[in-house]
Structure formats: structure tokens, C-alpha cells
Design a protein around this nucleic acid. Sequence first.
DNA 1: CGGATTGTTGAGGATACTCAAGTTAGGTGG
DNA 2: CCACCTAACTTGAGTATCCTCAACAATCCG
Lengths: 236, 236
Amino acid sequence: MHIQIERSEVEHLALFGSLDTAGLDEIVGAATGRRYRASDTVFEQGEQATHFFVLVRGRLRVTQVTSEGQQIIIRMVNPGDLFGIAKALATLDYPGTATAVAESCALCWPMQMWTGLLERHPSLAIQAMQTMGSRLLEAQLRVRELSTEEVERRVAHAVLRLANQSGRKEPGGVRIDFPISKQDIAEMTGTTLHTVSRILTAWEGAGLVEGGRQKLLVRDPHGLVMVADGLRPCLL
Amino acid sequence: MHIQIERSEVEHLALFGSLDTAGLDEIVGAATGRRYRASDTVFEQGEQATHFFVLVRGRLRVTQVTSEGQQIIIRMVNPGDLFGIAKALATLDYPGTATAVAESCALCWPMQMWTGLLERHPSLAIQAMQTMGSRLLEAQLRVRELSTEEVERRVAHAVLRLANQSGRKEPGGVRIDFPISKQDIAEMTGTTLHTVSRILTAWEGAGLVEGGRQKLLVRDPHGLVMVADGLRPCLL
DNA sequence: CGGATTGTTGAGGATACTCAAGTTAGGTGG
DNA sequence: CCACCTAACTTGAGTATCCTCAACAATCCG
């Protein structure tokens, strides 16, 4: 689980962008490297928040479970992203569960260092603030989608977001580069796996995507954008 | 529109909680006071963000309009809240429109001062961060509600939130202390004013609330909590 | 006293959920 | 390598929720 992480692997991350060498050394030096295999959990909802993290490699899924036991996916964590920053949310517990969906590496720091590191490295504080800001905007975007759009468009938006954040170009389209189930997509869009399945088969018929067991290839991103924008619905 | 705001009116705000006298003087001294009448707009979605604000008195509504023209209410702004902090969101424009729903007073600063003020007053930076954090958590809560709950429960949650943030105890219940229409509630919960109307009449029958044109009185908060929790549905 | 805004209520229908059954793909162990 | 088992997925039928459309009533304002 514990591993060595090379400085060279993290110095290019946007989060550390405008740090000088000494600052980077201090920050990375204080961190511990950790490795997670697919389906390992990094921390769990409600657990006391002992550490905060930066994802170096791989992909995580952050979920929440409602009091009735329904699960939703809050977001996917991509390399370079801060996560588990409970202090910034003024919370003592992790508000969600983070699970690796692919082999992943992260740097982690004890939560007590949060305030000190931010104070000593203003550029880090600014980055952290911007992280929070973009997450807030994203959450508001999702609220807007859930409030005003029908399921097919919401799914289209979710798939496009996945393709942008975690897509790898390959001949014939953009491949989502980690295993993703219809259930996952349902939990990202507030619908059921049944409806997602029906929508994806329809899209497949229209040549927009190509599915498979925990696989997804976007063949026609532009066409998908049209679906997301409400032109060209693909269901009857 | 421009008014004088007394130091005594703002020094108790949580935002300025742990500032020393000199700091408070500097910050409040740099601010301009503004007054808004009900239905005045403070700033508009897409406009260049020239100032950031703290609400001193009154109540604002922050809305967004989708590309299709549908409006949703992002949040209500209560006294003591920061708003219009586009810099924190790494945006140059205001992402929403802020409108006074009651006679309101705000302090405002030119946006260029954002970074400087935060740097010189770390306690302010911490407060700003916590503001962002609680807003992010709230947005995620709303995503969860929209994803998993049916309309009646969402409306119950929204009304309870209003009662907690903007409610005034009065004999017979908790009064929402600004004019609020069914359309407003619909835009907070992702439904239509028709459905809200039906729900509120049902609740009125059950003795949970008392409505009226732009009026709302919560008679039985505990009963409403049960509705919000999914026990005791009031619609057939 | 109009006129406008806000709210009420009914009927009909669409979207998407639930329930149910069956299929496919992949991993595991013999 | 094949048989088996499970998790993921597909598809159909029936239906509930909630939206749309429409007409009307109440309230507020000048």
C-alpha cells in the first residue's frame, strides 16, 4: 500500500504550478505515497478525516449513500485533483466514500498539516480555493441539469464530461479509460440502470457510441453534443 | 443607492468574527454601503464581476437562466453571507443574477481588492474558504435530493430550509419573512408551480402549513420533517 | 374599477420507474 | 479447457408520478 512517489511525477501537476523548488520539496517531502488497486476504498463516508490527498495516477469514484440506502456518484477524481479535503469543507468526517476504479497512486498528508501548508504556501491556498470554486460551479451545473433537463440529455452531458476528463483518443472515437457500468452512469445522472441501458442501445443504433460490459466508446462526440443540447433526441 | 453603514451593524457578523479592531476598520473602511429595494437587481448573470459583497440586512435571491430560458434559483442570500465572489470561483463574470426580494443593505468592495484583503487578513481567507465549503456541501445535498427524492419530499426540504434560514417565530408557527411565490419554490426544487400549488393545498389540509399569495407559514415543522423524510406522504 | 400578477384545479398524456424474466460476458476452479 | 457462477446487461409490460395544457379564480396595485 505504501509506495515511493518520484518528485518528477508530481511537479508538473497544476496544483503545484507556481511553487518554487524549495516549496515543492517541503510539500512533497511531507507527503506519503499510497497505492490502491481497483475497488480498494481510500476512505469511507462518515469516517473521521485523518488525511487529505492528491491523486497522482489512476481514477477514483466518490459516492454518497442516502439514509434510504440509495447510492449516488458525487464525482470522479482524476490525476492532479485534490480530494478528501474535509477541512476545506469545515467538516470533521469525510462526506463521501472514495473508491479506486483503476490502479491508482496518491500522495497524502495528515489533516493537521492542512492549515500550516496553506499558510506557508499561498499559491497552494489559491489553488485549493480554485479547486473548491470549480467544484462548486460543477455542482451547480448538475443541479441545473437535474432541475431542467430530461434523462437522455443528462446522460449525454455525463458521458461527454467523462470523455473530456477521462477519455483517450483511439481510432474510431474516444474511449473512457476505466471500467464504467450502466449502474455508474445511472448514479451520476439520477436515473436507473434500465433507462441508461435503453438510452445507450438507442445511441448505439444511431452510431453515437459503442457500449460493452463496463466499456464505453464515444464514436461521435459532436452528435452527442447535439443530444445534450436538446436537438436530436434519439429515443422514440 | 449609496448609503452609510455603521460599523456596529457589521462587527458581529460571523465573517468578521476573529478580526482585531484595526483589521475590521481597514476592511469596513474600504467598503461602500449600498441599499436595494425589493426587486432591484444587484448584478446580472454574465455581467463582468466588478465587486464582491456582504449582505448586511434584507434578503436576496440568486438565479440562473438556462440557454433554453428556464430559470432556477441557486440560493437565497441571508444577512452575513458573502455573495458575488466571482474571484473565488475563478470566473470573470457573475454566474448568476442577484435580486433583492426585500429591502436590503450590502457592503461591497471592488473585485481587485479580493486577493489583497485575503492575503492581509488570513482569518477572512479562512472564513471565505468555509463559505465555499458549506456552499459546496449544500449544492451536493441538493444534487442528492434531486437524484433520489420525489417532488413532495424535495419541496418539504426546501420549505424547511427556508424556515431555518429565513423564518421568524410567530404565534402559530414559523413565518417565512419575505415574499415567496409558488413559482419561487418550484424553481428551488426543480418542479412546476402547478405541482407546488397542489402540494401546498394538500399540506394545508393536513395542517402542516398555511399559504397565501406570496406568503408562507409553517404551522407544524415536525410534521414537515416527517414528510421530508419520506414518512407520511400527503398526496394521494 | 380595470389590469396584471399570482394561484387553483381538472383532464390527459408522456416520461421514466418498477417489476420481472432472460441473456451475455467474464472470472474461477476443477 | 470447459463448466459453472456471478455480475452486468437487455428487454418487455404495466404503471405511477408529474408535466403540459387550459380555463378560471383570487389578490394586489394604481
